[in-house]
Nucleic acid binder design. Structure first.
Length: 419
RNA sequence: CGGGGCGUAGCGCAGUUUGGUUUAGCGCGCUUGCUUUGGGAGCAAGAGGUCGGAGGUUCAAAUCCUCUCGCCCCGACCA
């Protein structure tokens, strides 16, 4: 992609209404623009990152046998009345009426809808288990949206729902999803912990939260310096001075951002909605359910929070919108421009996603934009290439600078971005 | 919802206290031309505002009054 043609509005100044790094930087780097309170346009650069995250999620969900579907955003009130959540959910549920005066809501989550689907279509234990997921826009009229995409009213979420004949079978899928979530976050290159949590309005028994470690998180957790033990601060009678109950190592207190939440729902929804199947003995039984949420747009923000430094984003290479950010220093120098153009075409032919800064502006702006935008491998086509045939590389993955022969650039990018 | 704050050009702001020298400014950005060209360039010329909206007071309102809408921050809720 040529930066000269790319709709990527970067700003030099800090927007006055943003307070945390991910919010400030996602505006400055041209990822998002606010539409109204807690509602954002996602611009091309930002959307590329979201699509990367989504692909990783699809990959891992498909791997554990979940199947992708797409349910409507708009949902009829009747289903919510069946479970009692029409009144329970309160002001956070965005309600509206259609032209006939029928009450509807914008889905904040989809237990009702999926249970309705399954009760109509699945009637036998032979059809179980089944695990369905979607990646979709959700709407929650939050009391206080803040921090940009970190806590919007409208956000993209992956939500999955599984249906089982037995608790034992739910346990298995539940563990599969937990593993999948861990894989997703690891593939996104982020540091995280899993904690047990309360279930809130979703309901259910066992549940876990997936926490991205970051200074600006709204949650506080203690975690072990040695093993993977971690707890929410207010949920356990534990102090930082205590030792890990598993391995007696030291504990660390950290703020964290919740990006995933898994629940063993049991029969809460299947019973209230009379969703039954016939077991092997011919007995009618309610489905045993699990549900699993994962915030896509929130993960994007969390990645910025965890990986930024100073005024620079650094994308983990796995979710970086481009693999290589190529800066042409002097577009007016014919020879240099020719080399850069050829290099650009060469990389494209070899399927390297390259962002090529061919703009006719001063070098300082290009350097600063590149640092801000956060593609972790930045290459400079400048005087050095005329003298020694080498590209100057700023490698933010390994925090180092390299000089790479033009001929070796493809290998370099492939090797460095393949982690 | 309780408490605090802000709405003036695309962005960031000054001007509001004490109404009138303001034809509503400044910086950045934008347009055109020339120069410049390795860490946010220089000169010149330009474009861009119903001062968030409605009503009121007044000879006169960005400025005073009433209502209203929007946004931000601090708390309780959540992926």
């Amino acid at each position: 992609m040529r930066l000269s043609k790319y709709f990527l509005p970067t700003t030099r100044k800090v927007p006055s209404d943003a307070k945390v790094p991910s919010h400030i930087l996602s505006i400055r780097a041209g990822l998002i623009r606010q539409v109204s309170r807690g509602v954002y346009n996602i611009l091309p650069f930002g959307y590329r990152i979201i699509k990367r995250i989504e692909e990783i999620i699809r990959d891992e969900m498909d791997k554990i046998g979940a199947q992708e579907i797409l349910m409507p955003i708009i949902q009829p009130a009747e289903l919510w009345q069946e479970t009692g959540r029409w009144s329970e959910y309160g002001l956070e549920l965005m309600r509206l009426e259609d032209r006939l005066g029928r009450e509807m809501c914008l889905g904040p989550t989809h237990e009702e809808l999926i249970t309705e689907l399954i009760r109509k279509e699945v009637h036998s234990y032979k059809q179980l288990p089944i695990n369905l997921y979607q990646i979709q826009v959700k709407f929650r009229d939050e009391i206080r949206p803040r921090f940009g995409l970190l806590r919007g009213r409208e956000f993209i979420m992956k939500d999955a729902y599984s249906f089982h004949a037995t608790w034992k079978d739910l346990d298995k899928t539940y563990e599969d999803v937990k593993k999948a979530y861990s894989n997703i976050i690891e593939k996104c290159g982020l540091d995280y912990r899993i904690v047990e949590a309360e279930s809130g309005i979703i309901g259910g028994k066992v549940n876990h939260e997936f926490m991205i470690l970051a200074e600006t998180g709204e949650e506080e957790i203690f975690y072990c310096t040695n093993c993977d033990f971690a707890v929410k601060k207010d949920l356990a009678p534990i102090k930082v001075e205590d030792k890990c109950p598993n391995c007696q190592s030291d504990l660390i207190k950290s703020k964290a951002i919740e990006v995933g939440h898994t629940f063993q729902l049991g029969t809460k929804y299947s019973e209230s909605m009379k969703a039954y199947f016939l077991d092997k003995e011919g007995n009618q039984k309610p489905f045993i359910m699990g549900c699993y949420g994962f915030g896509v747009t929130r993960l994007l923000s969390a990645a910025i929070e965890q990986k930024h430094y100073d005024n620079q984003i650094t994308w983990p290479i796995q979710i970086s919108p481009f693999k290589f950010h190529m800066i042409l220093i002097n577009p007016h120098k014919e020879k240099l421009k020719q080399i850069a153009e050829e290099l650009y075409q060469y990389l494209l032919r070899n399927n390297i996603e390259v962002l090529y800064d061919d703009r006719e502006i001063s070098a300082g702006i290009k350097f600063n934009d590149a640092d801000l935008m956060g593609i972790p491998i930045i290459g400079v086509v400048g005087n050095e290439i005329l003298k020694t045939n080498k590209i100057e590389i700023k490698n933010k993955i390994k925090s180092k600078k390299d000089l790479i022969l033009k001929e070796d650039i493809l290998d370099y990018i492939t090797t460095e971005s393949n982690i």
